[in-house]
Structure formats: structure tokens, C-alpha cells
Write a protein that binds this DNA or RNA. Sequence first.
DNA 1: GACCGATAGTAGGATGTCCAACTAAATTTC
DNA 2: GAAATTTAGTTGGACATCCTACTATCGGTC
Lengths: 166, 166
Amino acid sequence: MAPESLPFDPIARAATLWGEHVGTPTVMAAVTSIMRVQQILQSAVDAALRPHGLTFARYEALVLLYFSRRGSLPMRVMGQRLQLHPTSVTNIVDRLEADGLVKRIPHPTDRRTTLVEITESGRERRLAATEAVTEVDFGLRGLTDRQTETLTELLAKVRRASGDFA
Amino acid sequence: MAPESLPFDPIARAATLWGEHVGTPTVMAAVTSIMRVQQILQSAVDAALRPHGLTFARYEALVLLYFSRRGSLPMRVMGQRLQLHPTSVTNIVDRLEADGLVKRIPHPTDRRTTLVEITESGRERRLAATEAVTEVDFGLRGLTDRQTETLTELLAKVRRASGDFA
DNA sequence: GACCGATAGTAGGATGTCCAACTAAATTTC
DNA sequence: GAAATTTAGTTGGACATCCTACTATCGGTC
């Protein structure tokens, strides 16, 4: 790659200037790239979902409930599956419930637990939203199917190394 | 990869179930992986920076100013380099200034423009913070140098396709 | 030289994320 | 069986991000 085509990544650039730590420049360039691409994807997906009154976070929650056996899950489980802090789950469910896409129902035996159930309206919304995000390929462009697979595999290594599959 | 070792990615799983859109499952698996890895890195970096009273966003801004010629930049330029909304720059600079790590100074000729200058305290903080983040390799683990480079190249393709280098 | 569109930055509001602390309920311990 | 511990969820606070709207200033045009 010609230097002219490189982005200005402050961290990556700093890495080049530091230079003393072997491998560090490479690492920082990768990290800033991931941060940027995540930002690009998030932005693209949110734009596609905005007309449907959803964000990616809420869309993911809706999809999760949709594909669950009973159409409902405890909030704790949602947090585990979506890798979210309990407070984030509370926040997301609050908004989905305000829109009538899900509803909180008490757990039949454990009174600590709250079940979140997708409503009929939620199912319809998920369908429309799914069409919108697949339409824009979730914002991921510029890669062949093969390259996309390679990307996923590399990221899986990182996730494994960080105990993401525990 | 054995199914047992796969993470529960609601979107990726949904993709498998949909199946009708060629290539879509691959894309979604990649997208959710990027989202997750970004989350892992963000978390690791923020944890390393917390003892130094910084977040990754503010650290990036500090590094950017540190490596600038005069140790100062217009806020507009900071936004371009860091790919941030003008209001995000305002927010970050507010906090850095409150901590005495940078200060706003008027532009000599253009009274619309505000220059942000790194202070001596800011330079010291950057050094300490840099040691902290390099110590943990920015949270990126599990890849060889070669694989890290490949990852960066793939992400660069995505960024190019999305006009990130414009 | 005055008007008018473009530009720089900020204010307010919405969303989402996390952490710390708290309440309520279940489970374990002794 | 009572006390201590663990677990589920919420509340309040801190950050960061974006968007819309606004003010101040610059520059080009007539």
C-alpha cells in the first residue's frame, strides 16, 4: 500500500514512531482498524434500522427472542447471549417494551426472574428490520465471500484468546 | 470448528436459519465478530487506561495532539483525524481540559477556530497511559504478527469500500 | 461595502454502555 | 430453621456517540 492511501490513524502512526516494541505497530494498526470498521458497520446498520424505529442493540435483542423456543427468555440469559451488562439489558428491554415490541412477564417459579416475551408486533417489526439490514449487507462491503470467512476466522482466534467462548 | 466451540451469535445463527440470501450468513458472522472483538478491545484498553483517568477516546485525542507539529490542532481537524462528530470532539476536549491535559486557545487569524493544545501535564499523562496500553497489547491477543497484518489488510478493504480514506 | 451561503464550534436531547450500590428472592451453610 | 451468601434485576451516575438546531465568523458575489 502506498503511504498516500493510508488513513491517518493516530495510534498506528504513533506506533510507527515508537518502534521500540517489536510487533506493537502492527497490533495498533489492527486495533484502530477494528475500531473504525465497527464504527462504520454500526453506523450503516443503525441508518438502515432507523426508519423502523430500532437500533442494532434492540434489533439483536428482538432477533434473539424471535429465535428462542418459547419466544421469551429471562433477562439474565439475554445478557449472556448478547454479551451485555445487566443494566444494558434493562435499558434495551425498557425501550422495546415502551414500543410494545416485547413485554415483561413474571417467571412462573422463580420470583427473582423476569421473562421478556416478544409480541406479535415485535415479530412483524423484526421481519421488516431484517429486510432492511440484509439489504445493505450490514454495512460490510469490499470483501469476497472467501475474504469475509478469513476475517471471521481471524477474529474468532482473538475471541478464543480472550475467553469469549467460555 | 466444532459446533460446540461456536459462540452464540444471535444474528449469525439467524443467518444460518434464513439461508435464502446467498452470502448473507457469512457476512453476518463477520459483522457480529467485529462487533464482539471491538467490544473486547475497548474493554481491555479502557481497563488499562482507567487508573490513569483516561478513556480510549480521550487517549487517542491526546496522542493525536502529542504527535502534531506544534502540539496543537483546530478542533475541526481533530474531528477529521479521529473520525468523530464535531460534538464528540467538543465533549472530549471539555473533559481533557477539565483535567488540565489540554487547553483551548484562540486561533491567531480565524476567530471561528479554536485551537486545542496539549499541556505539559498532558504529555506526561500520555506517556504513562501509553505504557499501560502497550503492556496489554491493546487487548489484541491470539494472533501472530502475520495474521495481525492480514486482519488489518482485510479491514482496510472494508474501509476503502466505505470511503473511509476519502 | 452589504448581503448570503458556507464553516467552526457549542447546546440540548436521545441512545447505549459500563460501574457501584441497592432491593428482593433464592440457595447454601451451619 | 436461621443466618450468610449468591443471584436477578433496577436505579443513579459517568461517558461517549450521534443528530438537530443555534451562534458567530469568514468569504464570495453583486
